[in-house]
């Protein structure tokens, strides 16, 4: 089963937030939506779960009780405890006898020691994990997580990704948004958004193999028209032609792919 957005346009007042985007979200897969602040990730997530109405296009999602959603700001109630938050979600979804599932989620999210702590007193990482546990509680067929790892440290991020992969392994369709390309590389499918449009979409292998021209690495950036720092060295993009001396061709990664796509779009915009 594939859920998702087809040719979706969303306008806020006069601003076009999504401009005809296709974002398929397949069951049993983790689809990662990557982009910077203002790219349209949250709008896409909200449109998918039905919180925002598109002006045109098609949205495919299962019925409401089969959708789990975590908003960008974790969406937990600060004056309820961890257990009460989960219990409240269970009631809202009308889940019969939810206690064993709540206990299981508290255990796998590592929130056992904070079971009776107010959500407002949790650390950022624990709060995000509670948000994910709440989204997972109804055993949704579609799980939408909006920047669940922003502000999380690597340990919490690893824990969270295990929950996400675990849900996908059980057949859930997962859409996860992030600003980080290294995180996006974990996705089964990556969709990069920029200014409300899809910049690139596919598996990491596809995207990497489709980069036009070549990516090079060098210590002498001056010879390159398009270049960016990578660690103590420089990377560059050669649309065509031979690499300059002392530059070696390297296999691109997702960060390179997205930088090249953004450079091409910028060139298009300034040519228009």
């Amino acid at each position: 089963m594939t859920w998702g957005l087809e040719q979706v346009k969303v306008t806020y007042r006069s601003v076009r937030a999504l401009d005809g985007v296709d974002i398929p979200v397949e069951a049993g897969r983790v689809t990662v939506l990557v982009g910077g602040d203002g790219a349209g990730k949250s709008t896409a997530a909200k449109t998918l779960v039905g919180l925002v109405e598109p002006v045109s296009g098609r949205v495919r999602r299962p019925e409401k009780r089969q959708v789990g959603y975590q908003s960008e700001h974790s969406g937990v109630w600060f004056d309820l405890t961890v257990w009460e938050n989960l219990r409240f979600v269970a009631q809202a979804y009308g889940i019969p006898q939810p206690d064993s599932r709540i206990d299981h989620l508290i255990e796998v999210t590592g929130l056992g020691s904070a079971r009776h702590r107010l959500a407002g007193r949790l650390s950022g990482g624990m709060r995000q994990k509670l948000g994910v546990a709440m989204a997972l509680l109804p055993q949704p067929r579609l799980l939408v997580l909006d920047e669940p790892t922003t502000g999380l440290d690597p340990v919490s991020r690893t824990d969270l990704w295990m929950l996400v992969a675990g849900a996908a392994a059980e057949g859930t369709a997962v859409l996860l948004t992030t600003t980080y390309t290294d995180e996006a590389e974990r996705g089964s499918v990556v969709v990069a958004l920029d200014q409300g449009r899809v910049l690139a979409a596919g598996t990491v292998e596809d995207l990497v193999s489709r980069v036009p021209g070549r990516i090079v690495q060098t210590d002498r950036p001056d010879a390159l028209a398009y270049r960016w720092r990578r660690g103590s060295r420089w990377r560059g993009w050669l649309p065509d032609g031979h690499p300059p001396p002392e530059a070696s061709v390297v296999p691109p990664d997702l960060a390179d792919v997205l930088i090249v796509a953004a450079l091409l779009r910028r060139a298009d915009a300034s040519a228009a």
Partner: peptide
């Protein structure tokens, strides 16, 4: 760079 897009981040 928290919240910054890929190109903004390399810049």
């Amino acid at each position: 760079t928290s919240g910054v897009g890929p190109l903004g981040r390399v810049e």
